[in-house]
Design a protein around this nucleic acid. Structure first.
Lengths: 195, 195, 195, 195
DNA sequence: CATGAATGAGAGTTCATTCAT
DNA sequence: GATGAATGAACTCTCATTCAT
């Protein structure tokens, strides 16, 4: 596949992502994609055979490079407390994002496609986040910025709470204040205070 | 609509519920329902005009009578700690249930239909649970079974954690052990211990 | 069939007539009739087996007693000129009637059902009108109210002109002025003047 | 849409016209057209979205180029009397045509679709015919071939008479003799004689 | 590579008609 | 007589997918 082909593939994925954000996963048809890309029906099939294949490509792209968000924050900031706040703030932004939010589509995709354990990028990211949070908390405790008996348990709890907020935002609605309260609560359990 | 009609409506809803549990919300067609019910195409339309209407009926039924689970537990059990455990155990069962689990379908439905605030039974139940948990924790603190600075915040956090586990079970998978660990962690933050 | 049955049949025909006036012939379904009559589906079938049968009953009723309009006018009025004017005025009313106008439905019915010559009430009425007009003109000429070489030809022409106005009213639209002009023209060819 | 597409559109319209001639307007389904054209269900929808759209295309085609019939006759013939006869003869042919007669379908279409004044090709043609007839009669009078006090009124009356014959042919039946008699009568009112 | 016309399977929906009550 | 639930045929319309150009 030539360079031009790669470019076109990227182009299709980009347009398709918009469609998935707008319409979810299941409701999206190849026709929708074709129209969004303004290419020919047959043309699309040269690159992707169905919406599943296309969505998986979009999903992989989505998660590429995203793994290390927390790690980067650790490198860039002085104290574990600051890193934690940066991380939670990033989560908040994603939870509340209105436009370009592909969350619902991802959930829909996962409902009918439980990828083999190691092929599930969502699961992979979840676990990486848990691991990173755990290290962060362990560091925080060691440096006496935080108080926590079991860093692993706390990390997992934070991750599940964030998941709960994310899905709630897509279903029953969540206000910015509600997210803030959760962040404060989490900080509180770690013996920290948000200014 | 006579008594027999009501019976038939219930029958259709029951069969339809199975289909929704198996196939989610969006993928279900009127034909699927017709086949599951073993009735005629036109027959179904006498009762429900489309899958949305049918799903909403199933959803309402699903949540009818379910509101007071926690309240009942409070009435039936001696100590707040016991009630809390009963509640969390019930949640665990639902999170891990393999068959007859309509959770994914509900989420899918909510993704494309954000019901008006007060018409959203899922939201209503969420809020009732938060309220009941808050009372429970307040009682527990008063009776010196629990330790908690802010019952409302703790209640909300428990609710979001449960939501996180529920959606994770439908997407990235959750083991019984993982749920248990979360329950233990929650109990721990309330100063309690699971035997 | 008892008296009550006859009453009900009339009731159905009356309601059905409204439906035919509103929706034409072909577009009308048994369901439409059932709803307009507020009776049961099965109930309607006790009286009429399909819309054709029902429409034919309505049509027969429509034309019953109507045959002699012109004859009656002849009996009631002094001069042939007056009778002619009364007749043309009655035609004008029918041509321009907005509500309760079953004309289009009748045409539609006749398009797909060419009844055997003698069963066609529309044809029968047309011919009766021609005959009556002919007599009227003959009288008018004899009494020197009118001028006409061939009463039969003039009568037929008037009848076709009225048909032309009737169908035009249902298709391309006809104003009251247009009808008046035609009436004046006809009177003119008969050597008469409309005041 | 390329040249081939235009060809196919024409092809569909031609086949559809046959169907409309046979079955009228309302009774025709997309399925009927598909079968008459021997193309696929979906294929038809590439060109026309429903029977109304298709019929309107057929109707437009039907009336395209037809407007000037009378004008052409004026150019090609010597005397107004001859032109008038040619026109009335053409009308006669149309009135009596058995096969390929789309008249009833057009009426049916107009019954339920009263197009905006200027979009109604039937009305447009009617008015053009009236205008052309008027000019013709005025010429005839000037050249002393005809006798007529008011050319406009006479023209309108001829047009409505033709309409009357056309609808009668589709409903109560009209013989060739009946049409001839009307033509003779019209010629007579204009002071002319048919040989 | 790219196009877009064409196919045909299948979903949604409506109604004429029947029949047990 | 009267009801209205139930059936199933028929119709509309949309798309995934193919294929000649």
């Amino acid at each position: 596949m030539g360079d031009k082909s790669v470019q076109k593939k990227k182009y299709i994925m980009e347009k398709a992502r918009n469609v998935f954000c707008r319409n979810g996963y299941r409701a999206v048809t190849m026709k929708d994609i074709v129209e969004a890309c303004d290419i020919s029906r047959g043309g699309l099939y040269l690159y992707f055979s169905n919406t599943k294949e296309l969505f998986e490509a979009v999903l992989a792209e989505e998660y590429a490079g995203e793994e290390a968000v927390l790690e980067k924050a650790r490198a860039a900031h002085a104290t574990p407390g600051e890193v934690m706040l940066v991380y939670l703030d990033e989560q908040k932004k994603r939870i509340l994002r209105k436009k370009d939010n592909i969350t619902a589509a991802i959930y829909e995709y996962l409902f009918e496609n439980k990828p083999a354990k190691n092929d599930n990028p969502v699961k992979k990211l979840f676990q990486e986040n848990v691991t990173a949070l755990e290290k962060l908390i362990a560091d925080g405790v060691e440096q006496e910025w935080m108080v926590c008996e079991d860093a692993a348990e706390a990390a997992r709890n934070i991750a599940y709470t964030m998941e709960g907020l994310k899905i709630s935002a897509q279903t029953i609605g969540v206000t910015a204040e509600a997210v803030d309260r959760e962040i404060e609560y989490i900080m509180g359990t770690l013996g920290m205070v948000v200014k």
